[in-house]
Simulated assay, not measured.
Amino acid sequence: MSIAVENVSFSAGSRLVVDGVTLTVPKGKVLGLLGPNGSGKSSLLRLICRLRRAESGVIRLGDDDIASIPRAALSRRVAFVEQQATTDTQLTVRDVVRLGRTPHRGLLSSWTAEDEAAVCQALDRVDMRERTGQLWQTLSGGERQRVHIARALAQAPAELLLDEPTNHLDIQHQLDILSLVSRLGITSIIALHDLNLAAMFCDQLAVLREGRIVAAGPPDAVLTEDLLKEVFRVQAKVEASPHHGRPHIHYLG
């Protein structure tokens, strides 16, 4: 397995936010992390990239316990795209994406052709090459999100974690970004709210409720009408899509 979470727990103050979570993501596959607001999705992603430390349990990347991986090595290996990221520094789009190369370069390293190619390719992948010289602060929310995804891609990670990456994106770019991630061949975990998008683009799904995994497996096994009613409190009909064969949810109210 490329990512393995084994009985991991984490508390914020007196509240247990992640409660004994166990999940695995095979190498090169995409896992969609689902659940209502406050279910622990963002906290779990931060635990996996060691922005927070688990109180118990083990998180492995391949055969390595993340607690034993040096910070510099972890930064080269794992890319994390947060829901919102901002800065007061005057940076161009290219400057932001160049930051993705930082883990691969020493303090005195010169900018290389490999670095430049990684940045250009990442900008092309998110359709932002023509905005290279534009100030990041002048972009729309959706455009900023695409730039941050480009930064992550320029990092050339082995594992990619994305927290609600389609927030603020129009439907075309939602589809483009998730289609891109699904084709990268990078082990990825994507926290999503849109269950139909998760079913379309993720190989496996895991559903969190109050910090616990309540269902995990392929989309057609996880997205059942009973689960939607119990966890998300919605009445819905689930059918195989005639377009892609995966589950499609019709909300009934």
Rank of each mutant, 00 (worst) to 15 (best):
L61Y: 10
I66N: 09
S43Q: 06
A79N: 06
G62M: 13
I48F: 08
I59V: 15
R60M: 09
R60T: 12
I48C: 04
L47K: 03
R77C: 08
F80P: 00
V58T: 15
R71S: 13
L45K: 02
R50T: 06
V81Q: 00
S75G: 14
L47C: 13
R53K: 11
A73M: 07
P70I: 10
I69H: 03
E55P: 10
S56L: 04
R53A: 12
L61H: 13
A67K: 14
P70R: 05
L74P: 04
R71G: 00
D64A: 15
V81Y: 02
A72E: 14
S56A: 15
I69K: 01
I69G: 07
E55T: 05
D63T: 14
S42M: 06
R46E: 14
L51G: 09
R53P: 00
I48L: 13
S42W: 01
P70V: 12
D64G: 03
A67S: 14
S42E: 06
D63V: 14
A72Q: 14
R52E: 15
G62R: 12
S68F: 02
F80Q: 01
S42R: 00
A54V: 07
A73I: 08
V78K: 01
L47D: 11
V81M: 02
V58P: 06
D65N: 10
L45T: 01
C49R: 01
V58R: 08
A54Y: 06
P70Q: 09
I69Q: 06
S75F: 03
I59R: 02
I66E: 07
A73N: 04
R46H: 10
S43I: 10
P70D: 11
R60E: 07
R46T: 10
A54R: 05
A79D: 04
D65W: 00
F80M: 08
D63M: 08
A79S: 13
I48Y: 03
G57T: 05
V58W: 01
A73Y: 00
R50Q: 08
R77A: 04
I69A: 07
L44T: 09
V81S: 02
V78W: 01
A72R: 15
D63E: 15
A73P: 00
G62A: 11
S68C: 07
L51A: 14
I59S: 08
L61F: 11
R60K: 14
A54I: 08
S68K: 14
S43V: 11
G57F: 10
D63C: 07
A72F: 00
R46I: 07
I69T: 07
P70G: 09
S42Y: 01
D64Y: 11
A73K: 13
I69P: 04
G62T: 13
I66P: 10
P70F: 08
F80R: 00
R52A: 15
I59T: 12
L51R: 07
I69Y: 04
L61C: 09
L45C: 04
V78N: 03
A72C: 02
R50S: 12
A79R: 01
S42T: 15
L44D: 09
G62E: 13
S42Q: 06
E55A: 14
R60D: 08
A72P: 02
L74W: 01
R52Q: 15
A67I: 00
A72L: 10
S43K: 03
L44I: 10
L45Q: 02
A67D: 15
V78I: 12
S56T: 15
L74H: 01
